[in-house]
């Protein structure tokens, strides 16, 4: 039973993390290769505060705030660069983050932070909290999707110049995506720190950034339900099969390649095509 709870909690955290990147990369079309840095910022913020005696749920706010603050800075920097260069910039963020953490004694340096207090409400309580966080974030991103913000994002993701000529204030919408996306990652990080109860710079590096990007792309860029499904699957697999964990980057890389080559719309597009065929309409 305990094991299942751990797996489910990890799954919920992965879903939250993937949904948060989906706002930036899926909704707004801004590729990020460094999203794990924001998971890390949330994790470190929450871990330090809760070691100082702050209740877990209260640490959520500064964890999200710190991640969003740095997200805003990266967002402002990203306004000046375009697609391919944005990938490099965001990749730089994750190397910068791990580089800085390694050198800071208050952040545990190379060793990391151990002995993060167990959540006061126990393992099941943490699972419930994680699920509530996923639910709240999910409702928020559905709201974005269905509102005019999602409408505007659709145009920016496809063609920024045209979006501008329709009167859309592109920079503001991009920054909004970065804020919402990085805050979500910060929240996921706070949960993660208390699930694992030990964090170090290696947990928030380039590999983790690529993993979460793989979840978004395999789920179907921008598709909320596809991303949830792929995050759930991809986070569960390595927990059940050690071999997948050992070759995580290779497996994700192959899946990514397969998705881009054979199902460019991800699971979402694949399912839609199957249903359309099954439904008998062309």
């Amino acid at each position: 039973m305990a094991y299942e709870i751990v797996v489910l909690t990890n799954m919920a955290i992965s879903i939250l993390f993937a949904l948060s990147l989906n706002v930036i990369t899926g909704f707004c079309g801004q590729v990020s290769l460094g999203h794990a840095a924001f998971l890390g910022i949330g994790a470190y913020t929450s871990a330090i505060l809760s070691k100082a005696g702050v209740p877990l749920v209260v640490t959520f706010i500064p964890a999200m705030g710190m991640a969003a603050l740095v997200g805003l800075v990266v967002g402002v920097a990203s306004l000046r660069v375009r697609h391919d260069f944005l990938a490099i910039t965001t990749m730089g963020v994750v190397f910068l983050f791990t580089g800085i953490v390694r050198k800071q004694d208050i952040l545990g340096g190379e060793i990391g932070i151990a002995g993060i207090p167990a959540p006061e409400f126990g393992r099941i309580g943490l699972l419930v909290t994680a699920l509530l966080c996923v639910l709240a974030y999910l409702l928020f991103v559905i709201r974005i999707r269905k509102s005019w913000a999602g409408f505007a994002f659709d145009s920016i993701a496809e063609d920024e110049d045209t979006a501008r000529l329709l009167g859309i204030h592109v920079p503001r919408f991009k920054l909004f995506a970065f804020l919402v996306g990085t805050a979500g990652a910060g929240l996921a990080g706070a949960l993660y720190a208390h699930q694992i109860r030990f964090i170090g710079p290696d947990s928030f590096g380039f590999v983790e950034s690529i993993s979460v990007l793989a979840m978004v792309i395999i789920g179907g860029i921008g598709s909320i339900w596809g991303v949830i499904l792929s995050a759930a699957l991809l986070s569960a697999l390595p927990q059940f099969f050690q071999i997948i964990d050992d070759f995580k980057l290779l497996v994700y890389g192959l899946l990514l390649f397969g998705a881009m080559r054979f199902a460019p719309d991800g699971i979402d597009g694949l399912l839609k095509r199957l249903f359309r065929r099954a439904g008998g309409t062309r």
């Binding site: 709201r143 913000a149 409408f151 505007a152 329709l166 009167g167 859309i168 503001r172 909004f176």
Partner: peptide
Amino acid sequence: LAFGGSKLLSPLRALSV
């Protein structure tokens, strides 16, 4: 979308509609 007017200038306004 082009009829969006001020909703296209403010993400928060866009979110509220």
